[in-house]
Design a binder for these strands. Structure first.
Length: 520
RNA sequence: GGCGCGUUCUUCUAACGGUUAGGAAACCGGUUUCUCAAUCCGGAGAUGGCAGUUCGAUUCUGCUACGCGCUACCA
């Protein structure tokens, strides 16, 4: 027995690691889905394996146009490029389950042949009725070993009748015949030992009356056919793991079946429950990687990309939601993530998403970028405002203010005054810092500035300081009003640097304008 | 209701029987500066509860509470 185990284990070890991300195209990909994809990708790359994208579109009623393209674009934006899958080629396709439709029936038939599954003719309406009746009695209807013998299926009907019904084209489903009283124990790679007793499980539909398999059958068959070695999916799938294990067993393909890992859920920042698409609007953060416009309702949902997040920040943030390296490192490039990733270091409990932390990551990645790169990213924003600027000057400006930015769009907020004179002045600053004699002092300063020949921050500062000392004026009493005149508010980088950049004429002009405009 | 999973500062998490329970975000205070932010320094802040095992439990076991997930011819 022990040696058999060893052989099995070594057999599994020999196989090339293959994992899949298998979303259903029912809408935009949620950030939780992206994290699942990320962990699959990291695991695959860590072990030199393959990462596949399979589209699980077995429910044709829930198909949403554009969702598949959205999923692919999201993965690309995050740098999670599949080795195989819809849109990426591969030998074991097709990778869209609707296109694999003919492949599933024979597995369902095989299960029936061997007594692991049966035909059921109960209509959806009949079952609904049973559910309602049970509910009235404060019970729950379940199609299982207790009820299957009283329902319309190939277990209770004579084989002649079953044949007749099938021949007549009557609708039927194929259900799994859950075995009695078996303990299914599995070593989940994240959660450790997890066990279930089959008496608590119901006879799940494997094959629907529309000729499509359900998720349960399709994912087992496909994972088998696609040589998937590890299934890494969300915690919501944990309850169906025993069914899947039994399916592999009944199909006689247990030996090569994948190992399971169930990821913790991503929870709402506040309140209860898992993160949902509505939370983003309510609390002002994106839930989706990319902007999504619902073609039916016309509603749109913001995306991390359009909100100005860098993909590397988004990925880094997601990686640390439910996983840590065991060190104090918090910033990881994709290569570093691949290097450090380990399923055993995935946390078991659900993680509450913190939008603030996402911003913090973005700030970090923005600071890492050179002024030249940021200037390039900022240029379109400037162009849109009809402003042109020299690359060199733009770099200078960006370099000066980037440390106070979280997003590229913040560059404008922090640097607008380099491009445009202020149109209004901050009330609070005006009230507290603009004294009756301020205008008079600023007039004197303007005259002084006229005399400055070398218009450089250092030189301006020297002339200015000497003047201030001679006059015995307080630095603050004059500096803040000048800043107000140049910037329009009381924030920003070094005042003399601003003077240098906007130029002598503009500096003096703005000071004069402020003196003319601000009336106490 | 049933089944399953989970529970360390406000949040993300570390500590896999022996630590003053560590780090990060946020928050507060200080530093710096003409201002704001950043920076830097400092502060406050946690093992849900009850038993048991043990010389010793955040860590192991049981119970309980709470939270979450699943319980569709959805995935």
């Amino acid at each position: 027995m022990l040696s058999l185990c060893r052989i099995l284990i070594s057999k599994i070890m020999e196989r090339k690691v293959r994992v899949r991300f298998a979303p259903s195209p029912t809408g935009p990909l949620h950030m939780g889905g992206v994290r699942t994809a990320l962990f699959n990708y990291l695991f695959a790359k860590k072990h030199g394996g393959d990462f596949l994208l399979r589209i699980e579109d077995t429910d044709q009623n829930r198909f949403v146009p554009g969702a598949e393209e959205y999923i692919i674009e999201s993965l690309k934006w995050c740098g999670l490029v599949p080795d195989e899958g819809v849109g990426f080629g591969g030998e074991l396709g097709p990778y869209r389950q609707s296109e694999r439709k003919p492949m599933y029936k024979k597995y369902a038939d095989l299960l029936i042949e061997n007594g692991f599954a049966y035909y059921a003719f109960d209509t959806a309406e009949e079952l609904d009725e049973f559910r309602k009746e049970a509910e009235a009695k404060k019970e729950v209807f379940s199609y299982d070993l207790h009820t299957r013998n009283n329902l319309k299926n190939s277990l209770t009907l004579s084989s002649e009748e079953v044949q007749a019904r099938l021949a007549s084209g009557e609708h039927y489903v194929i259900r799994f015949k859950m075995p009695e009283n078996r303990d299914i124990v599995e070593e989940d790679l994240i959660r450790g030992r997890v066990s279930f007793n089959t008496n608590q499980l119901d006879d799940k539909v494997l094959f629907k009356s529309d000729g499509m398999p359900t998720y349960h059958l399709a994912n087992v068959v496909d994972d088998h056919l696609m040589n998937i070695t590890h299934v890494i999916r969300g915690e919501e799938w944990l309850p169906s793991m025993p069914l899947h294990i039994l399916l592999y067993e009944s199909l006689g393909i247990s030996e090569t079946r994948p190992r399971f890992s169930h990821l913790p859920l991503i929870l709402k920042p506040e309140g209860k429950g898992k993160l949902s698409k509505r939370d983003g609007d309510k609390m002002g953060f994106p839930v989706f990687p990319l902007l999504w416009k619902d073609s039916v309702t016309g509603e749109s949902y913001r995306g991390y990309r359009e909100d100005g997040y860098f993909p590397e920040a988004f990925v880094n943030m997601l990686a640390l939601l439910g996983w840590n390296s065991g060190t104090e490192q918090e910033f990881f490039s994709m290569d570093e993530l691949i290097e450090s990733f380990d399923l055993s270091r995935v946390v078991k409990s659900g993680a509450r998403f913190d939008p603030e932390k996402a911003k913090w990551f973005n700030r970090h990645y923005l600071q890492q970028k050179s002024a030249a790169e940021l200037a390039g990213l900022f240029l379109p924003i400037l162009t849109e405002k009809g402003i042109t600027a020299e690359q060199q000057q733009l770099e200078h400006i960006v370099g000066m203010i980037k440390e106070r930015c979280e997003f590229v769009k913040d560059i404008w907020t922090q640097a607008h005054f380099f491009f445009q004179a202020p149109e209004s002045y901050d009330e609070k600053t005006m009230k507290s810092k603009w004294k009756p004699d301020t205008a008079e002092k600023l007039q004197a300063i303007s005259e002084l500035l006229e005399t400055v020949t070398e218009w450089k921050a250092e030189a301006i500062k020297e002339t200015f300081s000497a003047f201030m000392t001679a006059k015995e004026w307080g630095f603050g009493a004059v500096m803040v009003p000048i800043r107000l005149a140049l910037v329009g508010g009381s924030s920003g980088p070094d005042l003399f640097e601003i003077c240098e950049l906007i130029g002598k004429t503009e500096t003096i002009g703005r000071i004069k304008k402020a003196c003319d405009t601000i009336q106490l």
